[in-house]
Amino acid sequence: MKSSRSYPYWFILPGGLVYLVLFLVPTVAAFWFSLTHWDLFETRFIGLENYYQFLREPFLITGVVNTVIFGVLTSIAKSVLGLLLAVLLTSGLLGQSFLRTLIFFPVLVSTIGVGIAFAEIMHPARGMLNIGLSYFGIQGPAWLIDPNLALFSVALVDIWKGVGLATLIYIAGLATISSDYYEAARIDGATKLQMFFRITVPLVRPATVTVVTLSLIGGLRSFDIIWAMTKGGPGFSSDVLASVIYKQYQAGFYGLSTAGNIILFALVAFIVIPLTYWFNRREVDL
């Protein structure tokens, strides 16, 4: 009996060890280093001084606001577009297998590569996008140079790159919906739009929770595509919290940048954990 009761715990032991080594230990170590002034040769404990100094950064508020805007905007867009594309690609459309591959392909491409490529495509003078618009008599904007457009231009590219994964998750969610619901709705005279909002949207809710959560976490932590396209510029207009942290690291303030990472972790947790709780509670209520 004793071995029978303890038997299932052996299954979680490998995952628990991986979680301990790759997450818990680095997290505790990062928190310790955030309380120190350190480099490759010396570590000196300074308490919460790094946090005080990081919170006094002149462009910190801009970075936090941009982080939230970027995360929320890309998460909503990926969720809405992913669901619409999933419905389209499960409707028996001609060539839908090819279209699924085409939409998912950007997910497989290197984020840095995408950022560098679109930095050239969106170049105000020699970029393919503005050159194409000029053929239609449209003066293309300075996508990555205008402070009012830079962050949204990067967000647009991030949505293009990530919507394929959201679409794939929604396709899996749509596959779990029984066709009986739609047959009954047709008999009752429901239109396609009514079936979408009354059947598809509610029953695909678990997939929506997954897409929103993953997209929001990824958006709040986003760095690589922003750095590849704008490096936080022009000025500090497209800086997010992760790029502010990286600039501190580049300047050699390792303890300060580590404190910034802890603050970023806390920000993501502060937004995502209550949202996940709310989603789960709504799902139980339904």
Rank of each mutant, 00 (worst) to 15 (best):
residue 217 I to T: 02
residue 147 P to V: 04
residue 142 A to N: 12
residue 28 V to I: 11
residue 99 L to K: 04
residue 74 T to Y: 14
residue 137 G to I: 06
residue 275 L to N: 05
residue 246 Y to M: 05
residue 224 D to S: 08
residue 72 V to G: 07
residue 60 L to F: 15
residue 26 P to Q: 09
residue 48 L to Q: 09
residue 137 G to E: 09
residue 207 A to C: 08
residue 53 Q to W: 14
residue 155 A to I: 02
residue 143 W to Q: 02
residue 248 Q to M: 06
residue 274 P to D: 01
residue 11 F to P: 08
residue 272 V to A: 07
residue 22 L to F: 15
residue 171 I to Q: 00
residue 119 A to S: 10
residue 58 P to K: 13
residue 48 L to M: 13
residue 173 G to H: 00
residue 155 A to G: 06
residue 264 L to Y: 11
residue 247 K to F: 14
residue 148 N to E: 09
residue 156 L to G: 06
residue 72 V to I: 09
residue 198 R to F: 10
residue 206 P to F: 06
residue 139 Q to F: 10
residue 13 L to M: 10
residue 140 G to T: 03
residue 236 F to G: 02
residue 202 P to K: 03
residue 224 D to K: 05
residue 14 P to W: 01
residue 29 A to D: 12
residue 261 N to C: 13
residue 11 F to M: 12
residue 164 G to H: 00
residue 242 A to L: 00
residue 211 V to E: 00
residue 165 L to T: 01
residue 94 L to Y: 14
residue 25 V to R: 08
residue 254 Y to F: 05
residue 184 A to H: 07
residue 68 V to L: 14
residue 58 P to M: 00
residue 268 V to R: 03
residue 112 I to G: 03
residue 90 T to L: 04
residue 145 I to V: 03
residue 233 G to W: 13
residue 227 W to Q: 04
residue 174 L to R: 00
residue 151 L to R: 02
residue 203 L to T: 01
residue 6 S to P: 09
residue 51 Y to W: 15
residue 83 L to R: 03
residue 49 E to Q: 14
residue 142 A to E: 11
residue 118 F to I: 02
residue 210 T to H: 08
residue 253 F to D: 07
residue 246 Y to E: 05
residue 120 E to F: 15
residue 87 V to I: 09
residue 266 A to F: 14
residue 28 V to Y: 15
residue 181 Y to K: 02
residue 87 V to L: 12
residue 185 A to V: 03
residue 10 W to D: 09
residue 106 P to F: 12
residue 2 K to G: 15
residue 268 V to G: 01
residue 38 W to Q: 10
residue 58 P to T: 02
residue 207 A to H: 08
residue 215 S to G: 05
residue 129 L to M: 09
residue 284 V to Q: 12
residue 272 V to T: 05
residue 144 L to V: 04
residue 67 T to H: 02
residue 128 M to C: 05
residue 184 A to N: 06
residue 127 G to M: 07
residue 260 G to P: 13
residue 189 G to A: 03
residue 193 L to D: 05
residue 209 V to F: 11
residue 68 V to T: 08
residue 183 E to G: 04
residue 71 G to N: 11
residue 103 I to E: 12
residue 164 G to K: 00
residue 4 S to F: 15
residue 214 L to K: 01
residue 281 R to W: 13
residue 168 L to F: 13
residue 90 T to Y: 11
residue 61 I to W: 13
residue 234 P to M: 00
residue 218 G to S: 04
residue 158 D to W: 08
residue 47 G to R: 14
residue 13 L to A: 11
residue 161 K to E: 02
residue 222 S to M: 13
residue 34 S to V: 11
residue 19 Y to V: 03
residue 198 R to T: 02
residue 207 A to W: 01
residue 71 G to M: 12
residue 26 P to L: 13
residue 127 G to H: 09
residue 3 S to L: 14
residue 68 V to N: 08
residue 271 I to S: 02
residue 93 L to P: 06
residue 117 A to L: 12
residue 201 V to R: 03
residue 26 P to N: 11
residue 100 R to D: 03
residue 183 E to Y: 07
residue 139 Q to N: 09
residue 193 L to H: 06
residue 250 Q to E: 10
residue 52 Y to E: 12
residue 101 T to D: 11
residue 259 A to K: 02
residue 176 T to V: 04
residue 10 W to C: 07
residue 198 R to N: 08
residue 153 S to T: 01
residue 270 F to H: 07
residue 174 L to W: 01
residue 195 M to F: 06
residue 276 T to D: 09
